[in-house]
Write a protein that binds this DNA or RNA. Structure first.
Ligand code: MN
Ligand code: MN
Ligand code: MN
Ligand code: MN
Lengths: 151, 151
DNA sequence: GTATATTTGTAGCTAATGCTAATTTTTTTA
DNA sequence: TAAAAAAATTAGCATTAGCTACAAATATAC
């Protein structure tokens, strides 16, 4: 009985580095995306987005939200007034729209693949930020394609 | 022409928070996983894992590597001696093995789905850390399943 | 064997994400 | 309307990840 063949899978260092750099870039923006998505949802559902509600949906303390929101304001994604609801700028709305759309595609994709709904939602929250446009297109195709439906 | 139907997709706050908390948990460990994976590769290929080679593959400066490696040592994943190669502990080897395996499954999955190789590698580097065991199983199934091959 | 080049380490900085504790403001209730 | 409850802010702390600039050690070349 021979040892596992162990496939030679040598990748060029620069290419590998590219992957890690892209991952870091994604991490630099993903939290902002999640926040504006949540804020957008709250605005749709309740007409306002309050710090405590955002905190409940992101799973952090309200202090963490306050701090992040001030960075979002600095970056032009939201507008704030002390003790008042947070609102989205045009840019914030656009980012939210795209994030929500991508999020939904990832969830639908995982569900169609056979992942249970709960896990699909949980995993999608992380996966969504690392899906390039070409991969997103592949996900879309798979969701649309009747061939891959539950047979 | 009516506006888009806009599906009501209201998720319970706690469930949504769970997703974000899982994402944060993943981010807390993923960098360590990528480092030990790279270190393991270097040890296999060259018999030693040097700071500068790790830096080239992760795409950061050697200073960043030195600092992270000392945290990895603190956490029992690697052993170090000044100006010498870095080696893996038993735990480090185990983490590397699992990470590499999962990484490969994600890459194979994306490729089988029709994502170009370069994008598959790049995206996998981020996606891998957010794939739960049930989703990983779904990926494996899809890769094995002849039905989904290029027709 | 010395000089040079490469590699590794250290010091010190910025920025982000998270927290608890204490304060202030707003909202609700009595 | 005054007291109590809820919500938001501020201050201050810890941790991590990244960087540049500089110093020390190791490896290579002559
Ligand atoms: Mn997300
Ligand atoms: Mn991530
Ligand atoms: Mn990775
Ligand atoms: Mn990896």
């Amino acid at each position: 009985m021979s040892k596992k063949p162990k496939v030679k899978r040598v990748v060029k260092p620069e290419l590998q580095a590219k992957g890690h750099m892209r991952t870091r870039a994604a991490h630099a923006t993903e939290l902002a995306e999640d926040y504006v998505e949540v804020i957008s949802d709250l605005l749709d559902e309740h007409g306002e987005a309050r710090v405590s509600d955002i905190a409940a949906r992101i799973g952090v303390t309200h202090v963490t939200v306050t701090k992040k929101v001030s960075l979002l304001a600095r970056d032009g994604l939201v507008t704030t007034k002390p003790y008042r609801s947070i609102f989205l700028t045009d840019l914030g709305r656009e980012v939210a729209r795209r994030s929500r759309e991508r999020h939904q595609i990832v969830v639908d994709f995982l569900v169609k693949l056979g992942v249970p709904k709960d896990a699909a939602h949980t995993d999608a929250e992380g996966i969504e930020h690392h899906v390039s446009s070409v991969t997103l297109e592949a996900f879309k195709r798979f969701v649309k394609d009747e061939v891959n439906g539950a047979s």
